[in-house]
Write a protein that binds this DNA or RNA. Structure first.
Lengths: 140, 140
DNA sequence: AGAAATTTGTCCGTATGTATC
DNA sequence: AGATACATACGGACAAATTTC
């Protein structure tokens, strides 16, 4: 069989289809996706293509895959406006180390405001973001 | 050929090697990586495995791939949209201090990927943002 | 507790499509 | 137009983690 992929690659089309099933509720949040074997049968695509489609969902934060277990639809992904239960936000005053001091052009030990946001997904820390600003600095 | 991957998968080992070449300067920032074909020959791995290794570098923000062109090592300086020049983005591998180690549930000293964005406005550093993620090296 | 079945992870080789040089 | 380089897709094989019996 040739491999004609005009506009949309096969794996993206499959990813879209799966995404739609998730958003429509056909596949409930927190549930397992069909196995790779089942999806290869349904879409009559190779396993590699199916895995690529699932990788798209993972990259978009919609699913999480576990070895030997399967791929879950992430329970609480979208629509987390303010007060996300899974994010932790901390604001504290800290002091500049050598590197930060050099960047800001201040003395090491001088005060800075540190803003830290910890993002978790399924209990695991996914990313830690820290912003540093000078004290009493007004936005423009 | 069998597939003996004891501790570390082949594609991760290759990714580490490439990462090291980048950090050591053997492959300069902004330069093109060797082509997939060249890497296939050098590491005697299949093209799929090479592409998996390069994907790791992309996920860590170290490289960018362009169809038909090649894979670039991301340079320190990133493009700025119109208006606000003078942003500087740095990606480096660092080690977890006590606090970060506790957050991620890893050992202090374990490697992390740090993205740092320094925003200046008329020569003055306005804000420093640092994000920390697990290296694509350790699975868990 | 142990063995088998299930499911995802890694790797190979090949072929063809598409973008860039 | 031709050569080069990345993108997509197939099929097969074995490894490793989990679940089931």
């Amino acid at each position: 069989m040739p491999t004609p992929h005009f506009g949309q690659p096969r794996y993206r089309a499959i990813a879209s289809e799966l995404r739609q099933r998730i958003e429509s509720g056909a596949i409930p949040l927190g549930a397992l996706l069909p196995t790779e074997g089942a999806l290869t049968a349904e879409f009559r695509a190779s396993r590699g293509t199916i895995r690529q489609a699932i990788a798209v969902l993972r990259e978009d934060g919609l699913a999480t895959t576990e070895h030997g277990r399967g791929t879950y639809v992430n329970a609480h992904t979208r629509f987390h406006r303010s007060g996300t239960p899974d994010d932790l936000e901390t604001i504290r005053e800290t002091v500049a180390d050598e590197k930060l001091a050099a960047l800001f052009g201040i003395e090491p030990g001088a005060p800075l405001v540190e803003h830290e946001i910890v993002t978790r997904r399924s209990g695991e820390v996914k990313v830690v973001v820290r912003t540093y600003r000078l004290l009493n600095q007004q936005q423009r």
